[in-house]
């Protein structure tokens, strides 16, 4: 094995075709991709950027409508992660981990910007609003448009944190464990409780329907 004493360069990512990056890294588990990124693999960074920046942007714009703030936060997160390569902690679910630091970053930025203290997403008015509607009608479903409207109204009366929990579960497809990570809960139980309580408001509406 000959060593090429070259400076680390970002052009490394250019020698491999774009489709190859998605193919190679798409097969790997989150901890593997994260470890490769930690080891300075530019292709892994490239992969993370492609997959998670659109996701983070969509998520960030739920926290605040100010797109410039969201862009700034995404930028800071990746700059900081890149500068800490070699010492990053293990990550089991990249999406949940990035959402967690995105929450922190946006709250920090907005607090500074608006000279107010935002401690958690409940302090952000109108964050994580929910829509209940499906593009296609499921034939076997007994959930009418009227019920969906009722559900939507009920869900949007919940706290922002509860809505976030529901959205993480259904929109982002995260598990309870991953939801706990986003909220920085020590126990998965706490995440379950948060979701269950939020779902109670739906239960009554669905019960009514059956009667």
């Amino acid at each position: 094995m000959a060593i090429n004493p070259k400076k680390p360069t970002t052009s490394a990512s250019l020698s491999i075709k774009n489709s190859d990056i998605l193919r190679i890294y798409g097969k790997k588990s989150d901890p593997e991709v994260w470890e490769a990124f930690d080891y300075g693999d530019e292709l892994a960074f490239n992969y993370l950027y492609r997959i998670y920046v659109p996701v983070l942007f969509r998520y960030g714009t739920q926290l605040t409508r100010d797109e410039a703030v969201v862009q700034d936060c995404i930028q800071n997160i990746f700059i900081s992660l890149r500068s800490k390569r070699g010492t990053l902690t293990k990550v089991n679910c990249i999406k949940a981990y990035l959402f967690k630091i995105m929450n922190r970053e946006v709250l920090k930025k907005l607090s500074k910007y608006k000279k107010l203290e935002f401690k958690d997403t409940n302090d952000l008015e109108g964050s994580f609003l929910i829509e209940v509607s499906s593009e296609s009608k499921m034939i076997e479903s007994e959930c009418s448009i009227e019920i969906k409207e009722k559900l939507e109204t009920a869900l949007n009366q919940l706290t922002s944190k509860q809505r976030l929990a529901i959205l993480l579960l259904y929109q982002e497809g995260l598990s309870y464990k991953q939801i706990a990570e986003v909220f920085d809960f020590n126990e998965v139980k706490t995440a379950r409780k948060l979701v269950y309580r939020a779902l109670n408001s739906m239960r009554n509406i669905l019960k009514d329907k059956n009667q």
Partner: peptide
């Protein structure tokens, strides 16, 4: 019917405004 109604609800829940980068 119960299964499909539940699936329908799960699929129907979205962010109110989806903003793409």
């Amino acid at each position: 019917h119960i299964v499909f109604t539940a699936a329908d609800i799960i699929k129907s829940i979205h962010y109110k405004e989806k903003i793409s980068i």
